[in-house]
Every structure is written in C-alpha cells, then in structure tokens.
Design a protein around this nucleic acid. Structure first.
Lengths: 241, 241
DNA sequence: CCCTATATTTGGTCCGACCAATTTGGTCCG
DNA sequence: CGGACCAAATTGGTCGGACCAAATATAGGG
C-alpha cells in the first residue's frame, strides 16, 4: 500500500535509496536534472518533482548550480520510514529509539489529558483500561484497543503539536515497520502491572503517575519489539513492493 | 532567509495560507491545476510543484479526480510554522504546546545522554551547567548557551529519531516565531533553582532527575514565552515577507 | 427514480524552448 | 608561476502545448 505508482515517486524512491545507502557523500552534487531524466528514461518534469520531494525531506539542497546531498542528520522525519525500510529487517536500534520517542510524546499527551479531562472523559479513559485488562490474552485485540485508547487520549489532550508529530511518525512507522509480522509480546504479569498502575493513576488523577506508566509501557514495547525483530528468521519478505 | 523566491514556492505559500485560514472546508476540491495556473498567471508545471509541496505536508490529497483539502489535524509537522505565522502574533496556546513538546523530547534525550555518557562527556555537560550559572544576568548569552548545551546533549544521546524531529520542529519554530523580539524571561531565582537541580542530577548521574528538570525548564520557558507574546504590544511587524 | 453509455474534466507525463544565474575553462596580465 | 578576469557551457526555474488513462459529470434509456 501507499505505493503511489507515479513515475516521479519511483524516481524519488530510487534516489532516496541511493542517498540513504551512502552512494553519495555529504556535499556531493547530484547529476543534473537533464542527466537524471535521461538516466531514468523520464522527462525533466518528472525528475524535478522527484527532486522536490527529496528537498522537502531535507535529503538534498537544490540550488542554481546543482542539487547537493545533505547530511542525513539534518534531514526531516520523513526519511525515517525509508531509512528503517532499507535493510531486510528494520534496524532494531532505530526501532527502539522510535518507540521510546513515541512513548515520550504519548506520555506527554497522557499527562495533559489527565490534567484537563472532565468527569465524562475520565470515565471513558478508565473504561478503556478495564477493557484492556480483559484482553491480556488476545494480542491483536489488545494492540487495537491500545490504539483506540491513545486516540482518545490525544483527542482529550487537544495538543495539536503532538498530534501532527504523531501523524508524521505514524506515516513513517506503521506503513514501513508494522506491516511485517513483527509481533512484540509483553509478558502478561508486566502488562497487568502496567494496567494496574495506569488505573491507579487515573483514579487519583495523578498525571505524573500515568505519564510515567505510559513511558514504562513503551519501554517494554520497545524491548519486546527489538527482541521480536532479532528473532525474526528472515522468513517473510514479500511485502508490497 | 528561507524565502526561496521561486514562483512555485509563492504559489504554495498562498494556497497554504488560504487553506489554513479556512477558505476551504475538509474535503473541498481545489481548483484544477489548469485553473490555478491561469489564476496565478503561471504554468501548470509551477502549480504542480506547489501542489506537490502541499500534498507532502498533508494539507491536500491529490488524486485523479482533483485535489481535496485534508483536515488540518491530519497534516504533518511542516504546517506548524505557517500555522503559527498566520496571525499578527503567534498563537500563545500553540506556542505553549510547542515548547512543552520540545521539552518532552529534550528531556528524553537528556535522560538517554546521562545514561550512556562516559566520564569525558559527563564533564562536558557539567561544564555547560557551570557556564550557564554564570550567565543568569545575560539573557541573550544564556539563550545561546542553552542551545549549545542541548546540541551537546543531542550528540551524546545519539538518538537519530529525536534529532530528526528536532530538525523539523526547529525549521517550524525558530524561523517563524523566534524572529520577532519575543524575549521570554525566566525569573532568576527559578533559573538558579533549575540549574542547581540539573547540576545535582548530573553529579548523581540520575537520569530521571535531569529529565524532570529539563521538563521543568521548558515548562517555565513555555509560561514565560506565552506571557511575552501576550504583552507584545503589536509594535514590531515587518519580518521578512 | 435508478442505471448505463457517452462526453468532459483531471492528474501524470512528455517534449522543446527560453531566461538568468552559476559553474567551468581558458586567457591574459603581473 | 599565480591570480584576476572574461567568455562559453551548464544548470535550475518557468513556459506552452500536447497526449494518455482514469475519474467525473452529463445525458439518455429503462
């Protein structure tokens, strides 16, 4: 999915791959638009649109003399997806960083949600936790319920900045990494402990406590995911090309 | 700066402004590329590049039937800058959310930096805090030193995900909001308290403590900035168009 | 009123061309 | 030999017109 089959997107994907895999060094000049066009058998317009994409994600800097490759560390979030999707399996360290970061932001919205929630909203959150407690045996259903839960938290917190970052991160992660059958598993006792702590924090309207709990959840999720990737026996390739 | 005077960028900026100020409703169809071209007195190619930009930041969804306006809440971080730069003064609530979010990420990297730092790196961090303590009277110098400090923290933490998000946020914030002479001022006693706590946390290599301290710093910064914007007497307009 | 067949619109791509600014290469002078 | 200077080739930005396939709008028939 998400593979918009336009020529310019394919060109952009190929150039992006080349840059991310180190075919160029920082500051190197890309071939001219005309050369790239002839190389890809495309029109200059298509190449220009592709280069425009790469420029927007900060991978290249287009100027009058030519397009120059930027250091990866100076790029935008949008390179994360392609970066994680490079190798056979996603880089565990990167995925771990990703989940920890996601967790920090989730914890922030969680704290804000608890701080500003009215009674009805608080009831909804508590209801979710109860539902979650009933799903510790069903991995898939739980995953989905957590998602709903955080969507609810996001709506309550009403934090546009985090929401937008979340959109960016989701676009990078869910489409690139979640697809394969990486099924992180958190031990049930740990999960029960987390849920209990969450419940307690909500009951006491203790925003710091729920924040810390959310952080811990993502920490566990990060560990579990890293492990799942590690023992992924390179079976399933195939994903949508 | 940052004002790339290309036609397509100007068209993108204008359309972006129109969308963000509510000239369209979710799902509304934009005029066709040909119509937009004639409206702006530009070629279709220029319009296409502009629309491509808007699509990449999630403001519109280009499909075969036409380009449709997406809900703002579904856009990418890249809309934050233009969104904050819309009115006369930046929206205080949005700026507050922004700084809190930035703080959450800074706290995360801070924790990771402390956890994984060797002795030399730890010394460098401590040296920064000492320097900061000597600058509580010089707002500008302190601002700059904090920036250096967090750059150092970022390098030590070696967290690419946060770094990339930071790039995105900086591109949205520093270029759009910091420009005007909004000078948030944190009371010196509070600043001294924060620095003391930071120093203590570093001495003890207590990652949680430094994380919490960083969060508090940004909380204070958020308050101070909101206040500074509030009493900004709408004097200085002018910024780069 | 619903469903289908046709005409129109729309985005994606291509080609060839022009302009202004940059890069490049060579030349001339000290 | 080295550096300043000038002209030619290159490069990105834009334009205009053109074609195609898919999606939309329109008219027609049940």
């Amino acid at each position: 999915m998400s593979a918009n089959n336009t020529l310019s997107n394919e060109i952009a994907a190929e150039l992006r791959r080349e840059i991310l895999t180190g075919h160029y060094r920082e500051g190197d000049r890309l071939a001219s638009e005309r050369d790239l066009a002839s190389r890809f058998g495309a029109s200059r317009g298509a190449v220009r649109e592709a280069l425009s994409q790469l420029e927007q994600i900060g991978l290249i800097d287009i100027q009058l003399g030519g397009a120059r490759v930027q250091p990866i560390g100076q790029a935008r979030i949008a390179v994360l997806g392609p970066l994680m999707a490079l190798g056979e399996a996603p880089d565990p360290a990167l995925v771990a960083q990703f989940l920890q970061t996601f967790g920090a932001l989730a914890a922030l919205t969680m704290e804000q949600a608890v701080s500003r929630s009215d009674q009805a909203q608080m009831n909804r959150l508590q209801a979710y936790v109860v539902e979650l407690e009933g799903l510790v045996d069903d991995f898939a259903a739980m995953q989905e319920k957590w998602r709903e839960f955080f969507l609810c938290v996001r709506d309550i917190s009403d934090n546009l900045v985090v929401q937008l970052i979340g959109n960016d991160l989701k676009a990078q992660f869910v489409d690139q990494v979640v697809n394969p059958a990486v099924r992180p598993v958190i031990a049930k006792p740990m999960m029960r402990k987390i849920l209990a702590s969450l419940k307690q924090g909500l009951d006491q309207k203790d925003s710091e406590k729920v924040g810390a709990t959310v952080r811990q959840y993502f920490e566990e999720l990060s560990l579990a995911t890293t492990q799942a990737i590690g023992q992924m026996p390179a079976l399933m390739r195939q994903k949508a090309s």
